[in-house]
Design a protein around this nucleic acid. Sequence first.
DNA 1: GTTGAGCGTT
Length: 218
Amino acid sequence: MSRLGRYGPPAVRDSYSLLVLNVSFRTTADDLLALFDRCGEVLDIRIPRDRRTGDSRGFAFVRYKYEDEAQKAVDKLDGRTVDGRDIMVQFAKYGPNAERIHKGRIVEEISKPRGRSRSPSPKRRYRADYRDRGYRDDYRDRHYRDDYQDREYRRSRSIERYERERYQEKGYRRRSRSISPDYDRRHRKNGQSRSYSLTASPSRPRDEHSPRSRSPLT
DNA sequence: GTTGAGCGTT
């Protein structure tokens, strides 16, 4: 039993993963454990966080031992107000090991070494969404890129839109780079941050020579 | 110091 100790309890194949959505950003796993532990035996609770900022993404994964307990948690805790937000509990469908999960249950033996010759095709499921493009320490800019771009990319597979808006991120952004008017009103005062005067200064006597003294000559 | 559709890490 020294090989099956991956990253969790050895009873991983007999667990039921639940997905908890609409979780508050400040809700911790301990808070969820206090609720989900009432419905049954909770094996583990994981809250995916951002790899860079470390903030919660707003959802969590609760793993139960039995299905009836998990189902009870779904029926009981689904719609429950936690930390001001009504959470949504449902069975997990996708994930790193979603292929080995059947209706929430992981039907795969991990304690049996495959020896060799099985599936040499390491189908990678990890997407390379993160690309280092120079992270600055600016707070607004950091969250703007993280919450907006990365989220939009996973939400919509529209490459066209992704490329187009990413194009603006590079500095080709038009005068209005605001996602929504609400976002702009929250993060900006009056929008007069820096008025790009399209027209040159109207009152700029460029052609006029300096008002030097009249006649330098006596 | 904010945000809010969705599916995961040692």
